[in-house]
Amino acid sequence: MRWSPKLRPNGWDGLAAAIVLLLAAACAGMLWGRGAATGGELEVVVSIDGGEVERFVPTDSAGEKTYTSRGYTLHVLVRDGGVEVSQADCPTQDCVHTGWIGRAGESIVCLPARVIIQLVRTDGGSDPGGVDVVIG
């Protein structure tokens, strides 16, 4: 044994855990805060092999779409302002298991087909510095 570690958790471990938690919260604030912002419109961005192939507004484009890449075909169902992969012939089926997504920032990834379906919020009209009501 080169050196024996402490085997009982102590306050410093708590500190380490707290730092990780803080980091998680900070990331959440930064990454999810944008998604929660009001204003703007939710858009679906479909990328294949790292390149964007299609962009549409889910509320305007309800219905089914198919994407083919690397020999796999994904059937994408657009409904209720969000999307899901209803059926795919990829071996992992992760994309199907992800289910429906409807919130800015969420994504569906099919690794074998290298397809990413991502929800983003456009900046249109949202003004973070704006006020809700003027008084006086």
């Binding site: 006020v131 009501v133 006086g136």
Partner: peptide
């Protein structure tokens, strides 16, 4: 509060 969970933003008019 606002729908995004933050407080309402009330601008006090500059007289």
């Amino acid at each position: 509060d606002r729908p995004d969970g933050t407080p309402w933003r009330i601008g006090v008019q500059d007289p």
